[in-house]
Design a protein around this nucleic acid. Structure first.
Lengths: 328, 328
DNA sequence: GAGCATGATGTAAACGTTTACATCGCTGCG
DNA sequence: CGCAGCGATGTAAACGTTTACATCATGCTC
């Protein structure tokens, strides 16, 4: 079923069929109606690849993500998707590239398939992008440390959120505050850690840092929770670099009979939907994840529609503390 | 940057460039190396649209989903994605089509962009599919009531899981069992409801049905939880049609000082990752969601690779009861 | 040394669209 | 009547690949 078949059936040229389908103006109304009728009857559907080839538009945008695990990405994709469909764009998701070379391959494979790229990847540094991105391909970087000029970037204000949380904990009277870190070399994780460290140094200069390793997974939070007694004295509060770890940790504490918030306060980061449903409900830093996705897509769409304009300044999304019962 | 530019630079024909890039056999090793070298230096990346046009392969598959909310879809997409990348396929996700016509549009828009389709949609009945799907496009239906022949289908054994849960509750001695239903006209929701009803009728013929409306959202579970006292006597157990509602309900019960499982037992369906982290941990029906996605994609890939073979019989994925503390 | 098989490379058609340009037939005006 | 102008339609080029087929050089066999 191609445009030719429809043309032959309707007794017109391919150009007319194309014009009828794309709603061009200078056409006799009855001709258009007849063509559309034939097209519908024949179940003709234009071939996207052929169309993309000539129009240089695919109406698809690629989202390159580090992972798809958990509610964070679910929310992120949801935000992107809703904005995408508002712009008539499709969303191509790609994920879990362990290495920079794998991430590079993904990027290269997307050439000619998408009109723009949304990239969130620990491997996305300036060199890697330059190596693997076609020039002139609209791109928005999310939560990345690459900055300065050539790409648009949008981030969560991880640092601001983490310091705000530290301030909150200190105001509530907590002093011995431990931190469960995210994966090394992860932008968000690093920024949150930096917020913890600087917050501690500024607000409680006497206190030592107390950091458990983690990798954003429930399991790593759980592990941190089981090691909490290891060096004798308990912390008064634990600040996990994301909610998922906080929940894993909460679970481990529960198993040991440690009461939250009476024995230890617990806080997280992200405010994933279930944070309010765990026991006790989790005090956390709200990140409007879906908004992040939505705004990133909007920025990308703007770039696609106005390719000549300069790329926008890096934007960052404010966070806000959500107080619940996990922190008295 | 096209194949022509590379050819010119390397002083060969476009055919040679194409052959070098695609690893064809009959080529002098040094020629190939030289071409590859030029291609790399010039940052040449083949245009996917052009390639698709001639090869009739896009290496993309479309996932048409009803929604993207919550961990269910996150897991599903993750399962699909991991299988997809194992087959060298990209995943195009599309979601939240409220109406049949909107869903139809999505399907049509995918023509020529994908090698196959994974469809999970309440609107996907036989007619609608016939109207909007190009003939011969490999398709796998997920959790749908359409059956019988023309399309491959893979489902969760919702009915079996729900009856198994009823059996479990009855064995534990619960008699007054309420059910929080999912959205009307949703295949999974209907099957689970059917499991509750038939289970009740068979195992406890004396007991009346007790059904709260819901729509799979936390909020609707919460609402059901607040109405639990409405008709005087409390149920002994509540079986929610999915975990998300069970968690919302748990939260509402907690607010009213109703103890789970001592006052009321609570069970869900899906075993989403956080089900084990709520308090009390949720007894539920485990559905291997990621596996569902993975197997659907495998079935689709098989269809794509062997288009001549008959479509496989509808498959269904067994569920299993996961006993946790929410049900003594 | 002629003929031939073989392997390397080039030429050009094909994929299914869109669109610039050409053509054609009217209408209306001088 | 002739011609400009215009609206409707057709023709064909272009998009960037892949690949069937043609060509060509090489080396081998007899």
């Amino acid at each position: 079923m191609t445009v030719k078949d429809v043309a032959k059936a309707a007794g017109v040229s391919v150009a007319s069929v194309s014009r009828a389908l794309n709603g061009h103006q200078s056409m006799a109304d009855d001709t258009r109606a007849r063509i559309l009728d034939f097209a519908a009857r024949m179940r003709y559907m234009p071939n996207g690849a052929a169309r993309s080839l000539i129009t240089r538009r695919t109406h698809a945008i690629g989202a390159v993500l580090p992972d798809l695990h958990g509610e964070f990405f679910s929310e992120l994709i949801r935000g992107m998707d809703s904005a995408a469909r508002a712009h008539g764009l499709h969303l191509l998701v790609s994920s879990s590239h362990g290495s920079a070379s794998e991430a590079g391959e993904v990027l290269r494979a997307l050439r000619g398939r998408v009109d723009g790229l949304l990239i969130m990847s620990p491997h996305a540094d300036a060199d890697m992008l330059a190596d693997n991105l076609p020039l002139e391909l609209p791109t928005v970087l999310m939560n990345t440390r690459v900055s300065g000029g050539s790409y648009a970037a949008i981030s969560i204000d991880n640092y601001g959120g983490a310091t705000a949380m530290m301030r909150h904990l200190v105001e509530r009277g907590y002093r011995r505050i431990a931190f469960i870190a995210g994966p090394p070399n992860n932008f968000d994780a690093d920024e949150r850690l930096r917020g913890y460290r600087n917050g501690l140094a500024e607000l409680l200069p006497r206190q030592r840092e107390w950091i458990f390793p983690g990798n954003f997974s429930e399991e790593s939070g759980y592990r941190a929770g089981t090691e909490i007694r290891a060096n004798g004295t308990l912390p008064q509060a634990i600040f996990a670099a994301n909610d998922t770890m906080a929940i894993g940790c909460l679970f481990a504490l529960g198993e040991q009979g440690i009461n939250v918030p009476d024995d230890i306060a617990m806080t997280g980061f992200d405010d994933i939907p279930i944070a309010r449903y765990v026991t006790p409900p989790l005090t956390t830093v709200r990140v409007r994840i879906a908004d992040l996705g939505r705004q990133a897509l909007e920025a990308l769409a703007a770039q696609i529609e106005h390719p000549d304009e300069n790329v926008a300044e890096p934007t960052s999304l404010d966070c806000e503390i959500v107080v619940r019962k996990s922190c008295s």
